[in-house]
Amino acid sequence: MALGFDISLAFLVVVLAAWTIQVHDTYSAVLAFVVFGLLVALIWVRLASVDVALTEAAIGSGVTGALLLSAAALLRPTESTVAPPGAAWCTAAGVVCAIITAGLGAIALLLPDPAPTLAPLAAANLPQSGLGNPVTGVLFVYRALDTLLEKVVLVLALVGVWSLAVDRLWGGIPALWPATCPDSTLTFLAQLLPSVGLMLGIYLCWTGADHPGGAFQGGALLTAMWLLVMLAGVRAAPATGLLSLRLLLVAGPTLFLVIGLSGFAIAGAFLAYPPGYGKPLIVVAEGALTLSIGVTLGLLAAGPAERAREP
């Protein structure tokens, strides 16, 4: 029964991926990609990785989907100008890709048994940190440096996106197409839902210490709510030059870095936590990171400045 479900799930995911690649219209391809992402999130649940499933549904499918949809809509007029490659070229590419798939598949099926695992180690050391969720434990204790650097990558990507603005618009307002009708049901949704979404975001961040959830998932929810408010035209997008906005962007990484550096003084190593204070410090860092991630993801999706700031 469970195997049958898994087979149909995997089959559907492959079909949707093929559709995403092959369908003529880019907009349909992106729509298929969003559905594909949601089904992949279901596969993550089946692989007993609920934290990843939440991240995939929120960021991999949701926020990425919003970004790609807006790009597909903007690029639609230019679509027909591109000629597809010839049949011989496609066949050759198909053969190469089939060989790569077969090789990877063989490797994946012939992985060593019993599989190497770090799970016992992670589980044995988890109580020391005071956390209950092993994935959060790995993210914020054992591989904290990765997590910190990843925040820096997010900010760097945003700097890259912003620097694509025309010089005279630097610090201006991103162009998010506002809603087509000024006062519609979308407005109502954007007035009603964000407060509920904010609570859920805070909940996901807070519960992430002990249950599936965490800063990424909570932050992505904040992003979704913010994008909804901006797209419905209830609140305008902020100018990228605003000092308060920039402070929000770096608040999370900075706080995390300060906690990491203070580890030298109080626990003898970078990103080490003194015994007994691990959990509170991590929760504080996670709270700030959730806010920063939410703002960063939203601005990444909003794109570079395209309107001048009002004086």
Partner: peptide, 20 residues
């Protein structure tokens, strides 16, 4: 309840887009 709200709003947005 959340699914209901989103279904109600999404259906109207799609209907509006179809008409336009």
């Amino acid at each position: 309840l959340l699914a209901q709200v989103s279904a109600a709003v999404a259906s109207q947005l799609i209907a509006g887009a179809v008409l336009r």
